[in-house]
């Protein structure tokens, strides 16, 4: 009425004029990124991977391509599959994180980057060599054991495959060596405790999955 409310509006904008801007100068300064951030630069630990291709099956877009052959080098040590191909074409990836959720051995992690602009689509495919050689800064997305350690992928050191597992890595290694042992029941399945992650249950397809997508085009 009588322009009073407009005058109030003018005061509001004037007040904001004197405030510190809430935006940041992006390349120089960045907003704080939560460790759970689902980003590019997938982190993959070959040592933990069994080649079960759960991630590939669970990807809504089918952008993960895995080709395995029976291992010739160390079958005696229980190394059943050798990974020929592990391609993630991130040009179509929507970073939903379902592959990470599906991985039963905690071998695949989301990354924390978001700055992988490329000039051609071919360069947008992360292949197995790239995954092997990349600096491993895994995101804590769907990995409570990492979150408990307070790990921050943006600032923290690269993690070794022995540091990131849900269970002790010795167990994992023994299973890889071919020793059939009872899997320890995850703490979240013990009824008295509040479950931390209930997707990690026995009838999960990831565990029963044995079919390997063999032939690449």
């Amino acid at each position: 009425m009588y322009g009073i409310n407009m005058a109030k509006g003018f005061l509001v904008t004037l007040k904001n004029f004197t405030k510190k801007p809430f935006t940041v100068q992006y390349p120089e300064e960045r907003v704080k990124q939560h460790p759970r951030f689902r980003g590019e630069e997938f982190v993959w630990y070959e040592e933990r991977c069994t080649g079960c291709a759960s991630c590939a099956k669970y990807c809504p877009l089918g952008i993960i391509e895995i080709v395995t052959t029976p291992s010739e080098t160390a079958p005696a040590q229980g190394d059943k599959y050798r990974l020929e191909l592990f391609d993630i074409s991130i040009n179509r990836c929507m970073f939903c994180g379902l592959c990470v959720e599906a991985c039963p051995y905690d071998a695949l992690y989301m990354g924390s980057g978001f700055e992988q602009g490329q000039y051609s689509r071919k360069e947008m495919v992360i292949d197995i060599d790239h995954l092997r050689q990349a600096d491993k800064h895994p995101s804590t997305f769907f990995r409570p054991q990492l979150e408990e350690t307070g790990y921050d992928p943006r600032g923290g050191r690269p993690l070794h495959w022995q540091d990131v597992g849900r269970e002790g890595w010795q167990w994992h290694q023994r299973e890889k060596m071919g020793m059939r042992i009872d899997r320890p029941v995850p703490a979240d399945l013990i009824p008295s405790d509040p479950p931390v992650d209930s997707s990690f249950v026995e009838d999960s397809p990831a565990l029963s999955a044995s079919k390997i997508e063999g032939d690449a085009e």
Partner: peptide
Amino acid sequence: FEMLCGARITLSYMRPGGVFFDAP
């Protein structure tokens, strides 16, 4: 939202049967 589920827009936070994870 980024704290909860790692994404800002396309969240996929909920799953049939609950939410995918507790809040940090």
